[in-house]
Design a protein around this nucleic acid. Structure first.
Lengths: 209, 209
DNA sequence: CAAATTTTTGACCGGTTGGACAAACGTTAG
DNA sequence: CTAACGTTTGTCCAACCGGTCAAAAATTTG
């Protein structure tokens, strides 16, 4: 159970949002230990002691960010539903995830940073809430396989591969741009990626024949 | 052109290796800014000033590590060759990359950490050496497509997807284990992943008609 | 208005960090 | 033995970092 939410003035609500936005920017670019309160305060346009008036510890900011983002981040998977055509469902899940990588790259990097370093602050969430959700959706996918609607394979690894391929465009953005070069690394890269991923997940690489 | 390599005594060679091994452990777990010279020194079994006798700055250790690892890391892609059956070539590239994620997870995380944070120290390498190599191999793959040996698609994004799916098992290891749970998260997960990825890349998800 | 409360600031503190340095220690060659 | 060279250590420092605190400034409330 959560403790009751403390009463907050208008200013507190606004400033806390401002700080969280700034912290997302800084944490996602430098990781938790690589970020300083001063950096966040500057990005939020306030002094360090002022920031610490709203969040008493650096970790509190990070924790609040994480809790909020996990919901947003898992929303696409939650939407994966048993109604509708399985292949269409999977295709739109992939598309939604890729759109999130495009529209919320900082959120993606924040998680990647945390998990890369062993998820010290959110491991319980991964083993609890996340695992439950994935298990539940894996069961749905297994149903589709049993019904012959999609090829038989491992649903958990399928979900991993969707996460990996889509989040790659947020987490490894610098590398993607560097490799694609100035001409192909522009905004169009997400549409190219979407086309490619759709083909990969539906048909694989074997030539039609 | 490189400066001529400085002469080194036997002890210097040994100790430098020791330090690099320790630094790989520490950097890959905590990132560059999250790691301290003291931690590395302790992991290498020596005092901080002693370590600084072999590497004068923290950044020098990181830089040396990066330069060495890039070669190892790209070796599988270098081996991707025009001789042999295209689908077989791609399959063994995927397998090799997955084996590297299994056997050298620290190296994978070291790169992931660096790139996540904008690759401040290796961006030139990405835009130069890496881009050239990928462009070269993309041309090979394009040849296969033109010859009808594999389905037509975007070679660059194909390479990204192989990187993403395989390295995921090193970089996001904690998450993978958490989601798979105690029973399926053991050593067998790499064989499951190999089976899944082979099927994904060859056949996709459409049910066999 | 004035009192009460909330917000902001500057100064400060203890601990950590990257790094410098000289002195000590060890080893080898003459 | 001793001079020369390579290695190791203890000590120290300046910068940085997370966080405190009291007091000033601004805002809300009666």
């Amino acid at each position: 159970m959560e403790g009751s939410a403390p009463r907050r003035t208008r200013i507190q609500q606004e400033k806390r949002e401002l700080i969280l936005e700034a912290a997302l920017e800084v944490f996602s670019a430098n990781g938790f230990r690589g970020s300083t309160i001063d950096q966040i305060a500057e990005a939020a346009g306030m002094s360090k002691p002022n920031l610490l008036y709203y969040f008493r510890r650096k970790e509190d900011i990070h924790e609040t960010l994480m809790q909020r983002l996990l919901d947003t981040w898992l929303a696409p998977l939650r939407e994966l539903d048993d109604i509708g055509d399985p292949l269409t469902e999977l295709r739109s899940y992939i598309r939604r995830k890729l759109e999130m990588a495009r529209d919320f790259p900082r959120e993606s990097r924040l998680f990647a940073n945390e998990i890369l370093q062993g998820a010290p602050r959110i491991k319980p969430l991964l083993e609890g809430e996340l695992k439950s959700l994935v298990d539940e959706k894996a069961a749905v996918i297994k149903g589709w396989m049993r019904a012959g609607k999609i090829a038989r394979t491992d649903p958990w690894h399928l979900i991993f591969s969707i996460w990996a391929t889509t989040q790659h465009y947020a987490d490894f953005d610098v590398q993607v741009r560097a490799v694609l070069g100035a001409d192909r690394g522009g905004d169009g890269r997400f549409e190219d990626a979407a086309r490619f991923l759709e083909q990969l997940f539906l048909d694989g690489l074997k030539p039609k024949g």
